[in-house]
Computed example of a mutant assay.
Amino acid sequence: MQSRSDATRERAKVIACADSLQTITAEYNSLLGGKWKGMMSLSNGGGRFALPPMDTVHLLSKPSIGVYAEGAATTDGYNILPVFNKFLPRSYYIDVFNKGQGQLQWTASVSGKWILLDKTASNKSGRINVSIDWSNVPIGENIKGEILVSQTARDTKRILISVFNPADPNRETLKGMFVEDNGYISIDPARFTRKNETKEINFEVMEGLGISDKVVRLGNPFSKNTYYPSLELTSNYVAPVRSDKYPMLLYDFYSFQGGPVDVYTYMVPVFPLNDESGVRYGIMIDDSPVYLPEAGAPYYSTLWIQSILRNTRINKTTHVLKNPGKHTLKIFTAHPGMLLQKIVIDFGGLKRSYTGPDFTLSK
């Protein structure tokens, strides 16, 4: 945690940056006698730039331990790390900080030797990286553990751990496949499993675009729309189609549960090239109907402004998985030229974020 003097300096920096934005905007709008006045504005998307909250924090008179578990909404209440998944071996962190004044000395202990910490004691605030010894962790889908971070016996924080380590399938079986993790699957569109291309339509990975600095273009935007003669592109969805007939990207993924799922597709917001071209693309899982969301939005609409500010148009479609196991998601080229940034399948565990969760490719 920052000291009071550090917080004061940071507060001054934030105010100075806000003042600079006001000055730069005013200078631009006064260029050449105000020729471009109004082109630059701190009002965007129906709102106006405002300083973030800068409330004063009053520290306790004595050192007091505080923790923040990665993924938690706040530092209050239960501290629970995301589920550790054997198919996506990764570490999560716990931030330890001082809620009071004076020097904080703390130690950390674990309930099982299979819980690994890169730091177990310190005399200052810091971060503990937590990982799992997969060679020693018990087999099971809901293995429980805990970490205790203590300053004294009466000043102790408890962080709960859950490990997903099923006996079947094994890690090699799912290697290189997108796998459900913490109630969602996040797919990198450039890592498609297979693709169907035609002479007119192919798929190109383009660098330097989108929220992840990489997108997949679904066909050349100047291609003629002749490969979907039976598809009514003014509908929201159509009947299932044969996978070997149309240009599409195919992504194999593995789920540990069945039932309804929401699929979020992150697209670069675009306008149609002309009145005859649309901005639709297709989504299908296994033998579900093909849903046809829009990649664009009406000009100057709230949806368009939000999409431009965010640099992505996010659409949601709902599909049904008949059972757990391997499935295939398919992205169709409905109108050529759409730019795909990310795909997220939500089983109920997806949390709100600005750019969506990290990709869940099994290793």
Rank of each mutant, 00 (worst) to 15 (best):
D262G: 03
V261S: 05
M267W: 15
S277H: 11
Y266T: 02
N274A: 05
D262M: 07
Y291K: 12
G258M: 00
V268L: 13
N274M: 03
V268S: 12
I283P: 12
D287H: 00
N274Q: 06
E276G: 09
F271Q: 13
D262H: 10
I283N: 14
V270N: 08
V263S: 07
S288W: 04
I283G: 06
I283L: 15
I283H: 11
Y281K: 12
G278L: 07
P269A: 11
V270Y: 00
S277Y: 11
T265P: 11
P289H: 04
Y291H: 11
P289Y: 07
D262K: 13
Y281T: 06
G259R: 08
M267H: 14
M284F: 00
P289L: 08
V270T: 15
V279Y: 08
V279C: 10
G259Y: 05
V270G: 04
D287R: 04
R280K: 15
P269Y: 07
P260F: 04
V261Q: 03
P269Q: 10
Y291V: 11
G258P: 05
S288A: 06
R280E: 10
V268F: 12
V290E: 01
I283W: 12
E276W: 07
G258I: 01
Y281C: 08
I285Y: 02
D287S: 05
F271V: 09
E276F: 13
G258D: 05
D275G: 02
G278P: 08
V290P: 04
V261G: 03
T265Q: 03
R280W: 01
G278H: 08
E276H: 07
P272V: 01
M267P: 11
D275C: 00
V261L: 08
S288N: 09
N274W: 02
S277G: 13
G278I: 03
M267Q: 13
Y281G: 12
L273H: 13
T265R: 05
S277I: 07
V268Y: 10
D286R: 00
Y266I: 02
P260E: 01
V290K: 00
D287N: 06
V263K: 08
V279H: 07
T265F: 05
Y264L: 14
D287Q: 05
N274H: 03
Y281Q: 09
R280H: 08
Y264R: 07
D262E: 10
D262Y: 07
V263L: 13
I283T: 14
Y266K: 05
D262A: 11
S277C: 09
Y264A: 06
I283C: 13
R280Q: 14
V279P: 06
Y264K: 08
F271M: 14
F271C: 05
G278T: 06
Y281R: 11
D262L: 01
Y264S: 05
F271R: 15
Y266H: 12
P272H: 05
S277A: 12
D262P: 06
G278E: 04
V263D: 10
M267K: 06
G278W: 03
Y264Q: 01
V261H: 05
T265I: 09
Y281W: 10
D286W: 04
V268M: 15
M284R: 14
I285L: 04
P269V: 07
P289C: 03
T265A: 12
M267I: 14
P269K: 01
G282A: 10
R280G: 06
G278F: 09
D275Y: 03
P272G: 10
G259K: 04
V261K: 02
M284T: 00
